[in-house]
Structure formats: structure tokens, C-alpha cells
Write a protein that binds this DNA or RNA. Structure first.
Lengths: 132, 132
DNA sequence: AGTATAGCGTTATGTTATTACATAGATTGA
DNA sequence: TCAATCTATGTAATAACATAACGCTATACT
């Protein structure tokens, strides 16, 4: 996949996410694209599905929102699980990878015979700037 | 908190979750309690909020559902983050704690000055029984 | 009794996500 | 070329998840 190969709707959704400072809900994305002809949630959800499949957008399960991948040049899929720290005050999201954590979780899964397909790691709290 | 001190609605919601084989959505809980007089979502959500606060119920963010704590005798709050493995085939949930993972995530947070309030770890995949 | 707190019941509404069906364009391959 | 297929799209309707706002009740404390 390359950015070149995105469809019209996918590009528009991706642009909105890239320009946003933080995560956006699907309906917020929809609102920002109404001027450009978007009318229905599905136009957003379908684009998001593909963008997530391509690894250029992540879904934040704990807040039902979406962010552009912070490491676009790398291939997120190649780096194990993507983890997030979400500031509940300013809304900013820090995306990170932690090999040790991945490894420990993989060990656990192996010990239980569990085949992991998708792992969610999300820390909600306060980022450095938001603690006074 | 003790089970003794649960209110009527809280007890009813907790009973439903305890008797269920797997996680339930709030609306499924509501449906199971209609016979017993429940009418509105809020009756369920309010009870769930308290049960979660007491640590006897967990919320699964990635599937918008709720489970009774699998380790009722212990105090989940005392064991660090509760993690879940959710089988996408049979729906069963394995609840576990992993000290090493907690530790690594705490290290990461410390290194970034991030104050963690609530951490979500959910692995979706196939449990041992559901792999043929 | 007075007041504070927690819980409850109900209606309405807000937010997030999907089903279902119809259409359009590109691609492939006999 | 024509049909078959696949992907993307548009739209309406609906399902699924969650909360706001209001008023009332019960309990506990002083």
C-alpha cells in the first residue's frame, strides 16, 4: 500500500486525521468533510476500515476515536503491538511500541495456547504538560 | 465494599454477570432483568459504574461489554492492571495479571512523565479450544 | 425536624456503528 | 467485445451503546 493508492474518500479521511492535533471520532470526521460532499457515516467508516487495514490509522478502543499513525515512514505492522498513552486533559495521544511488553504478552498467550490476533494497549491519564 | 452492601439494582446486575458464561453488553443485561422490573438503560449503567468502582466487574473496552471479576476473593485493585484475552470465536474471556507487563508500562510512563490513571490491555484472538 | 447524600425511575436525547440495497467504474479473461 | 467480477461509492434506515435532566425516595447524620 502507498498513499498514492488511496481512493478519494480514503484520502480525504486521512487528510483530516493528519491535520488534526488529536484523535477524532468518526462523526467528527464526517462533520469536517460535509463541505466536501460527505453525507453519511458509512463513507467515513468504510474509509477508516481500509486505512486501519493499511496501518496508517489506528483506532483507540477506549475512546472510540481514530488517529493517524505517528510513525508513517515505518511500517507499524512490523513493530509489534502499537500502544497508546491518551491524556484525559488535553486529549493528546502518544503512540509507542514496547518490545518487552509485546514479548511478555506473547509469552502469556503461548502458555495458554491463545492465538492473539489483535492486541489493545491504552493508558489513559495525564501527560507531562497537564500535571501541575 | 462487600457484596452485602450492594444495593438492590447492583445485586441484580452483578448476579446476571456472575451467572453469564461470558461478557454481556449493558443492553443484554437490561433484557435479562426486564422480568424483574428493569425498564431503562440507566438502571444498568448506574449499577455497572458502581460495580466497576468496587472492582467486582470489569469493562471490556474493545467489545463494549462487561464481565464479573474472575478473581473475586482477591482484590483486583491490588494486583495492578487487569488484562484480558477475549476469544472471538466462543466469546470466553480469560482474565489475567502480569506483573512484568505492568512494570514495563510503568517504566515507559515514568520515562515520559505520564501519569497513568487507567490502563487497558485486551488481546483478541482464538482460545485454545477454538483452534482446530 | 433539617439537611446532606446516595440511589432510583422515567423520558428524552445523544453518540457510535452497521444493515441493506442500489449504482458506478475498473479489471479480467473467454 | 461481452459478461463476470471486484472494489468503491451513495443513501436511507436502523441498531447498538451511552448519557442528560428531572424529580422523587430512602437513609444517615446533627
Amino acid at each position: 500500500m502507498s498513499l498514492q493508492s488511496l481512493t478519494r474518500n480514503q484520502s480525504m479521511v486521512f487528510d483530516v486525521l493528519e491535520k488534526a492535533e488529536g484523535p477524532l471520532s468518526a462523526y467528527t470526521i464526517l462533520d469536517r468533510l460535509r463541505d466536501q460532499g460527505f453525507r453519511a457515516p458509512l463513507q467515513v467508516y468504510r474509509a477508516l476500515d481500509k486505512l486501519i487495514e493499511y496501518g496508517v490509522v489506528h483506532r483507540l478502543e477506549s475512546i472510540n476515536s481514530f488517529v493517524a499513525c505517528a510513525h508513517p515512514q515505518e511500517n507499524c505492522h512490523g513493530h509489534g503491538t502499537v500502544a497508546f498513552a491518551i491524556c484525559e486533559s488535553c486529549g493528546n495521544v502518544i503512540e509507542f511500541h514496547n518490545h518487552d511488553v509485546d514479548h511478555k504478552l506473547a509469552d502469556w498467550a503461548k502458555s495458554r495456547g491463545f492465538k492473539a490476533e489483535k492486541t489493545t494497549i491504552e493508558i489513559r491519564g495525564l501527560c507531562e504538560n497537564c500535571q501541575s
